[in-house]
Design a binder for these strands. Structure first.
Ligand SMILES: [Mn+2]
Ligand SMILES: [Mn+2]
Ligand SMILES: [Zn+2]
Ligand SMILES: [Zn+2]
Lengths: 150, 150
DNA sequence: CTCTTATTGATATTGATTATCAATATCAAG
DNA sequence: CTTGATATTGATAATCAATATCAATAAGAG
């Protein structure tokens, strides 16, 4: 089990910088967040935390995930379904997602071409771009094999 | 004012093919949909239609927009905010969107490089891709000029 | 330790969309 | 043109995720 020293420090300074308090709940939520590698929802995290001794409120999970995003430790990600998911941001490289429309499997991928592409677009459309989201949909290898479809 | 003969025919055959009925409401909603060029929400369309004589129910607008999507006349688009928007699909080319994070302006853009890029990704990640969505965020020219920021 | 202020968590509320259902309209068949 | 089976409508209730409210509690500066 990792100790997440750096991330804890980032969060602490973030809280201090904003005049916010360091609480047991925030600590627990941060640890649970960092220990979970998937793209999970607030509810997923809430259910994980519920098993611990002092159950943490749902609202607090939502609130804290929002703080983690502001602290640049987490980012929201919109994949399947209608609920927001979260992923690690600190020390994680930019990436895109492919979602299998059949089994829901989501994989992360680097698309090095995106950088030059967004540069080109900036110039052509006179926008100063700050962010982009590329999401790809299709069928993964296994799902195609299983169904003998192509 | 255009007559949208082709689109009406597409919708008619779609309805017939599914054993659905041709109603005055569906006709009105189709016309309103086709006359509106922006990326609008179900509510936008509902408000437009409300001004007409027999006010059409909100639920019917939602239901019919869903049908228009299934008929390939419309497609859903997720831009600003939490509500789904709709755009024309029939006889409209594939395109991406840039959203100005300052003024909300949304522009459509062709990105010809996307095709070869997705082909490459297909091969590398062994997915059979069927769709992609690229959304870009930044500041438009006017907004940067106004604020003397860069 | 004390006091101000932030935080928590139960719960109510919101906002968007979908489901329900009785009344009504459509349309194929006669 | 009727008829009758079936689809549609629209008012409204329900759902779902997320946020706001608020009284009780905890943090932490001084
Ligand atoms: Mn990811
Ligand atoms: Mn568009
Ligand atoms: Zn799959
Ligand atoms: Zn702008």
């Amino acid at each position: 089990m990792m100790d997440f020293k750096e991330e804890k420090k980032v969060f602490s300074s973030f809280l201090k910088g904003r005049g916010l308090k360091h609480t047991a709940q925030r600590e627990e939520i941060l640890k649970a967040f960092l220990s979970e590698e998937r793209h999970f929802t607030a509810e997923d995290l809430y259910l994980l935390l519920k098993e611990k001794k002092p159950a943490i409120g749902f609202a607090t999970v939502y609130r804290t995930l929002k703080l983690l995003c502001e602290a640049n430790l987490a980012s929201e990600v919109y994949l399947e379904g209608s609920r927001v998911r979260y992923e690690h941001k600190y020390r994680h490289e930019m990436h895109e997602h492919i979602v299998c429309v059949n089994c829901g499997k989501t994989i992360e991928l680097k698309v090095p071409e995106m950088e030059s592409l967004t540069k080109k677009i900036e110039k052509k459309y006179k926008f100063k771009l700050t962010e982009h989201r590329l999401k790809l949909f299709g069928k993964c290898e296994e799902c195609r094999r299983d169904k003998n479809e192509e």
